[in-house]
Design a protein around this nucleic acid. Structure first.
Lengths: 294, 294
DNA sequence: CATATGTTTCTTATGTATAAAAAACTGGGG
DNA sequence: CCCCAGTTTTTTATACATAAGAAACATATG
């Protein structure tokens, strides 16, 4: 019943790993591979067995030799490496954002399960987790209601975001010189400059950098509720802008410049500059989102 | 498979409802009852059938007559009116707070299901929902980790709480005179004074009043994320203080006086007073919680 | 005896089943 | 026609089943 996505992901990762080793070399122990691939030894053994069966490696007593470098072609496709619960997330977001579901739409577990081709249990579990994003609401003994990806949603989201982010950004002013965070900030600036230099080709990489940047700011004073809220922001932006490409390049370039300004402000340790740069960026991000919703 | 807790709750409610009507009177229509009891007509009919079978009411064509007032004794016990998922919440909180689970404890879905005597599905669903309270964390393809009801948890909780509550409280300063919220504030003060007058007997009623008070403050400018966070606070306080009765009476009396001070400040519309009263209460509440954790 | 592999046991992810509850449909008065 | 009660259909809450994966245990080998 359970899908073997873990195995397939590990298998793909193992292909990459084998290509870094020489032909005829001896493979690391099962335990070492387990640590490297981040799965259990059970799965490692399954991958090794599969590699043996394909003749990629030769199993001798107490060691395994690489016989040939596996072909990229043999990788399992991306979809097959995603757990059903992850696929459901995508399906749901697609339903919501692409099909432009109306505020107030009733969500029917059974119907979604049929539409997505998965068991009701999975849909139910997904909806329960998804509840925290503030877009759906449960009604006792009945289904769920989709509250809508509306301007109001964006405003409420940004109100919290501003509180959280201003709070973290301000803390940089009193962050000691010796803090290792400053190094990360410098690396972050470099990453931004790099992306900016090649913006025409790589503007789609911004989404991930954005998320990393905002998480870095929050790291000065860890708070689980703030971190959890950043998941909300990340997922909303990730999916929304994935289906909404208008002005993508410009939008991202503007955001990068705002980030750079904020980094400068952080490094200046001047509260007023930090406040100003932070608020400027958040305001601009909010307006961009609002425009794209309207 | 599904339990009939909805029916039992509706049955109990119907007993209360029947006692407000005269013997020999005609019952409202099924539809009217449905609205009053907050359940589906299907359940109403089941309750009516059950009442008929017990001879409490007589079903004639197109109407039903009350034959006798049902005895309190016939009510279903409280436990049987709680959905399994609600019972699991209690069981889990009890495990966590009463058994004093250590930070880092691994939570095993299967084991909990056995311990609580419910299906794994239910435990899993509960844990997924409970995740948002920041006390547990999921590990891929493995179980959950209990992060501990620690001082750190309390501090992070109160950091957010302070941001949210100060934000709402301040908004009262610019709330127009005509706003219906002022009436609710006055009613809230009355409720506090009433409880204070009878504090020795009713100090246990504070928990619920506390939650209502803080929700009222947030209502000035609704934000779904703030509301959701109030669920976190409510559930944590509800269960924590349910198993931790030290100084309960004093603690609650102090809080009531702080609430009253805050109400005065809100009505004064003076930002500085509001800030001060709000912060004073939150600080005191935080210290109380911290003391009870240590 | 420490580490690696082979084996067994337990847990999680996901599907299916079903009673309870909700919702939709239907025919009949007022 | 609108509301009401009877009936049928659909959905939800919960239990259970099972393959995949993790963890624990056992054995072997240097």
């Amino acid at each position: 019943m359970r899908t073997d996505t873990t195995f397939k992901r590990a298998f793909n990762d193992m292909i990459d790993l084998l290509r870094t080793l020489d032909l005829g070399a001896e493979l690391p122990s099962e335990n070492a591979l387990r640590a490297q691939l981040g799965v259990s030894r059970t799965t490692v053994r399954k991958v090794l067995a599969s590699m043996s069966a394909r003749g990629v490696i030769v199993s001798e007593v107490h060691r395994r030799i690489i016989r040939e470098h596996p072909q990229q072609i043999e990788r399992y496709p991306k979809e097959e490496t995603l757990a059903i619960s992850e696929q459901v997330e995508t399906s749901f977001m697609e339903w919501m954002l692409r099909d432009n579901a109306c505020p107030g739409t009733e969500i029917n577990e059974a119907e979604l399960a049929r539409k997505f081709g998965v068991a009701t249990t999975i849909v139910r579990e997904f909806l329960n987790r998804f509840q925290k994003y503030g877009l759906i609401e449960k009604r006792q003994n009945a289904g769920w209601v989709f509250k809508g990806f509306t301007a109001n949603f964006a405003l409420e989201l940004f109100e919290i975001r501003e509180m959280f982010e201003m709070r973290s950004a301000r803390l940089f002013a009193s962050l000691p010189d010796g803090s290792p965070i400053w190094k990360q900030v410098r690396a972050m600036r470099a990453a931004h400059l790099e992306l900016l230099a090649d913006i025409d080709a790589r503007f789609q990489d911004f989404s991930e950098l954005d998320s990393r940047f905002h998480r870095l700011i929050a790291v000065v004073a860890p708070n689980r509720f703030i971190e959890s809220f950043q998941d909300v922001i990340a997922i909303i932006f990730h999916y929304h802008y994935q289906w909404n490409k208008r002005d993508e390049r410009t939008r991202n370039e503007v955001a990068i410049r705002e980030h750079l300004a904020l980094i400068d402000a952080l490094e200046s340790r001047n509260i007023a500059s930090i406040d100003q740069a932070c608020r400027a960026h958040l305001t601009s991000a909010r307006e961009t989102l609002l425009r794209s919703i309207a």
